[in-house]
């Protein structure tokens, strides 16, 4: 080391300044090429009344103003917030419980873990159809089973009554998504050094205290990431709801993603749908900021 001349050191220093950019370049360039254009395009068409081909009528900020006063858009936003809250809570609750148990010395661990991961392996399309069918009022197995067991007399319209449709959709989304959170937490827990638990138990910490003071802080970076991303995904959830209830009955399960899709591809109001999308973008961004403030690590 001592043999290096000042010039070489200087060059090395300049090089090392560039090092981080080298690491982040491949990902950044790909994203710039592929994601920025779609978003800018969406932003652009939100100022037009357009069919995307030969009708481009400038409407300025009209659609943004309209979104503010549109009762169905505010309703769908509110439904989205409730939906997201319950689903993310469900994901984390189940994810934490199962990851913790699976991290303990238990028998048939591989089997249990294998089973619990299953929902994640099926495409959304299949999960949606599967549950739509299980929950069908007339020919669904759930009603048939409950009636067979004498638990209910009349078939229940699981997805056709406001009171049950929303909880059912939330359940299906939790069912589909919790394994991802579970696996991320499990992987995170396994990167925690076991020495720390030993030290904690020598200090007399019980299970909860170990969890609270060892597991949770160590998992914080990974949890923050999973929490933010899971929230964003659930916020945008489309396929599961679209295929099970399509936002219905009435507008009981009408979340923003479904509403935007209907506006764009059923009613051909691309401009308005884009303006709504920009709103969603801003809202998601704010959620991200709030989460990071709340969970600031260090």
């Amino acid at each position: 080391m001592s043999t290096l001349s000042p010039a070489v050191l200087k060059r090395k220093k300049r090089l090392s300044k560039l090092t981080p950019y080298g690491f982040v370049a491949p990902a950044t360039i790909t994203m710039l090429l592929l994601v920025v254009y779609p978003i800018l395009y969406g932003f652009y068409i939100s100022f037009f009344d357009t069919n995307l081909v030969n009708k481009w009528k400038w409407v300025g900020l009209t659609y943004y103003g309209k979104a503010f006063t549109d009762a169905s858009f505010t309703h769908s936003l509110w439904m989205t917030v409730i939906f997201t809250t319950f689903v993310v809570l469900g994901h984390f609750l189940l994810g934490f419980v199962f990851a913790n148990i699976l991290n303990k010395p238990i028998r048939f661990k591989t089997f249990f873990r294998g089973v619990l991961i299953i929902p994640w392996l099926f495409p959304d399309v299949v999960v949606a159809y599967l549950f739509k069918w299980i929950l069908n009022t007339q020919s669904g197995i759930l009603n048939a089973l409950l009636m067979h067991l004498g638990l209910i007399q009349e078939p229940i319209g699981w997805l056709t009554q406001s009171a049950t449709a929303f909880p059912c959709v939330i359940f299906v989304s939790i069912w589909k998504g919790f394994p991802l959170v579970m696996i991320q937490i499990l992987a995170g827990i396994q990167t925690i050094n076991t020495d720390m638990y030993e030290a904690a138990s020598i200090d007399g910490a019980n299970g909860w205290q170990q969890f609270r003071y060892v597991t949770l802080p160590a998992l914080k970076p990974i949890l923050t990431t999973v929490l933010i991303l899971d929230t964003v995904w659930v916020f945008k959830q489309f396929t599961l709801i679209w295929l099970t209830t399509a936002g219905g009955p009435g507008s009981t399960t009408m979340v923003s993603a479904v509403e935007i899709y209907k506006n764009a591809f059923n009613y051909f109001k691309y401009g308005y749908a884009s303006a709504q999308s920009v709103f969603i973008l801003v809202i998601c961004y704010l959620i991200g900021v709030v989460f990071r403030r709340l969970l600031k690590d260090d």
């Binding site: 739509k132 069908n136 007339q138 020919s139 009349e154 078939p155 319209g157 056709t160």
Partner: peptide, 21 residues
């Protein structure tokens, strides 16, 4: 009518006819 009006689409309806429901 069979229960489940709101979730009875075309495909569900003809299956009910096929099944004699």
């Amino acid at each position: 009518a069979p229960a489940g009006f709101v979730e009875t689409g075309y495909a569900e309806a003809y299956k009910m006819i096929a099944a004699g429901t």
